[in-house]
Design a binder for these strands. Sequence first.
DNA 1: CCGTTTTATCGTATATTTACGATTAACGAT
DNA 2: ATCGTTAATCGTAAATATACGATAAAACGG
Lengths: 113, 113
Amino acid sequence: MTTTKRIPLIPARGRGIGKEDEELARLAKALGHPARVAIVRLLLARGECVCGGIVDRLPLAQATVSQHLKVLKEAGLVEGEIDGPRVCYCAAPEAVERLSHLIQALIETKGRT
Amino acid sequence: MTTTKRIPLIPARGRGIGKEDEELARLAKALGHPARVAIVRLLLARGECVCGGIVDRLPLAQATVSQHLKVLKEAGLVEGEIDGPRVCYCAAPEAVERLSHLIQALIETKGRT
DNA sequence: CCGTTTTATCGTATATTTACGATTAACGAT
DNA sequence: ATCGTTAATCGTAAATATACGATAAAACGG
């Protein structure tokens, strides 16, 4: 069998998919895992939290939590600041609000052609 | 190498991850792809739309769009009703609102221990 | 400088997602 | 009955995500 390369017909956003759709999807995707929602909730509740504190509260290994934190950081939903040997994480409420806003705007698409 | 089976330490939601986290994640994940956001937006804008109409407006093959529609349907974000040889899809705004509400509630976690 | 603590990263196994063409199924019209 | 149209499903390739143990890296205390 000849190994056929699969590439989307059009490199994405070739009309029909807008900038906002991509931003919304990016943020939603980052929250698209229960562990990550739990992490954000935890950080919002406590204001801030050391990585180890998060690990203690979740049924996941340290490496896994670290990876989820990385995803959240890349999406801008969480920020981490080094504090001695540990890292102090805190949620970025603006980013969560941004997501909320984008969804609200999506809802308000209703009726627009 | 002995093939070791990987199973999460605790079958998920073993404390630390709540019901709401899972629901939010489930909905967010469904919107976690640009094409699916675009589809929902399109359906909200037009009120309803035949599958083919969606295919025409996106840079994706029919099979791919159908698969995205399936994901959206399973998440309850979209409903489809058979209409002769075609299927008439429409968005389920309540589900989008539900997501919006869950995110809002997440934000309001701020400060709670 | 050495050990401890804390977190990130590497390596890896497995599962899921994403995309497509091809095929099937369901319907209306002829 | 057969044909054309429409949409779902199958099969499959490739990419990404998820999880873990093991190891590396950074910082502090002694």
